[in-house]
Simulated assay, not measured.
Amino acid sequence: MGQARYFARGTQPAADRAYAALDAAFGDEGLPVSIFEWDEAAGIFEVAVYFDVSQEPAQDAAIAAFAPLTPEREDLPDVDWMQSVLAELKPVRAGRFLVHGAHDRGRVKANDIGIEIEAGQAFGTGHHGTTAGCLQLIGDVLRRKAPQTALDLGTGSAVLAIAIARLGRIPVLATDIDPVAVRVAVDNVRANGVAGLVTGAVATGFAGPAFADGARFDLIVANILAGPLMRLAPQMERRLQRGGDIILSGILARQRRAVLAAYRDQGLYHRRTLQMGDWVTLHLTR
């Protein structure tokens, strides 16, 4: 049985309204509903919902839920998408880290630090240049230093928190604005055997019970977007221990100077830039 995708693009407020309406109408039925930034420069977001082609009444309700946006329909071929994705999703190496799915456990070698993350759960399977860049710099920092505490801000799948815990054997706080992402992160943490080191929590930036004690961290990793990273620069500085390290990504190469300027204003020093494709990962210290 094939699928149909209804999608629309618009400003963030309009897309947020459509996403909330679609999620309220179809989330409990298990239908996939998504939203993402389609064009960062123009501030355009895409929201979508997926149906089996037999669900015509539900599709009619979805068209109304998109208002004020006008959705388009795309018919998708009848493909076993998970098998297709798994066939193409090869293990990713970043230093000693090897990020892989369950189907590739056999590829983890004796000296590898394997991190098992399944495709489609949450952002961060290691295949995006931002995640791979963070993994590379995490390995570099932990080879030279021995931090005692770490924060993975915007954890997504928890791949970075797992990497820090497995290599550094230190406690890691892994936070995300999305409760679903945090649940996925906690599941991944358990599956990778570091539940005793990684704590998952819902938080918007540094607001939330997880930060109520005012604790500082020796290592902060944040793979989000350039805009939020610049806004969070003062709080990042306050939460970083003296001599500590920050690894930032989710930054396009053309945004690098603006992000560095925001952190330089807080007295943080640029140590290294790692570029992968159009994306950069930054290493700074206090």
Score class of each variant (00 low, 15 high):
1 M>Q: 02
2 G>V: 00
3 Q>E: 15
6 Y>R: 01
8 A>V: 04
9 R>L: 14
10 G>W: 09
11 T>H: 08
18 A>C: 15
18 A>S: 15
23 D>W: 10
25 A>W: 05
31 L>F: 14
33 V>N: 00
36 F>I: 00
38 W>V: 05
39 D>N: 15
42 A>H: 15
52 D>L: 02
53 V>H: 04
56 E>N: 12
56 E>S: 14
57 P>I: 06
60 D>H: 12
61 A>Y: 01
64 A>S: 12
66 F>M: 14
66 F>N: 10
66 F>R: 14
69 L>Q: 09
69 L>N: 12
69 L>A: 12
70 T>P: 03
80 D>E: 14
82 M>F: 03
84 S>L: 13
88 E>K: 10
89 L>G: 00
89 L>Y: 12
90 K>G: 03
92 V>Q: 06
93 R>M: 12
94 A>C: 05
97 F>Q: 08
102 A>D: 11
103 H>I: 08
104 D>G: 06
106 G>K: 05
114 G>E: 05
114 G>C: 01
114 G>T: 02
118 E>N: 13
120 G>Q: 11
121 Q>L: 15
121 Q>C: 06
124 G>R: 00
125 T>D: 12
126 G>L: 08
127 H>F: 09
131 T>E: 09
132 A>L: 08
132 A>R: 15
138 I>A: 10
148 Q>L: 13
154 G>V: 08
154 G>A: 08
154 G>N: 06
157 S>V: 01
158 A>G: 14
161 A>F: 03
165 A>H: 01
171 P>C: 09
171 P>H: 05
172 V>K: 02
177 I>G: 03
181 A>D: 13
182 V>Q: 03
188 N>D: 07
194 V>F: 07
194 V>C: 07
196 G>W: 12
197 L>M: 12
203 A>V: 07
207 A>Y: 08
208 G>T: 03
209 P>W: 05
209 P>S: 11
211 F>N: 04
211 F>V: 08
215 A>S: 15
216 R>G: 11
219 L>F: 04
222 A>T: 04
224 I>F: 05
225 L>T: 10
226 A>R: 04
228 P>Y: 11
235 Q>L: 13
237 E>K: 15
238 R>K: 15
240 L>T: 14
240 L>G: 10
244 G>C: 11
246 I>A: 10
249 S>R: 02
250 G>I: 08
254 R>P: 02
256 R>H: 07
257 R>D: 15
261 A>M: 11
268 L>I: 02
268 L>P: 00
274 L>V: 15
281 T>W: 03
282 L>H: 06
282 L>V: 08
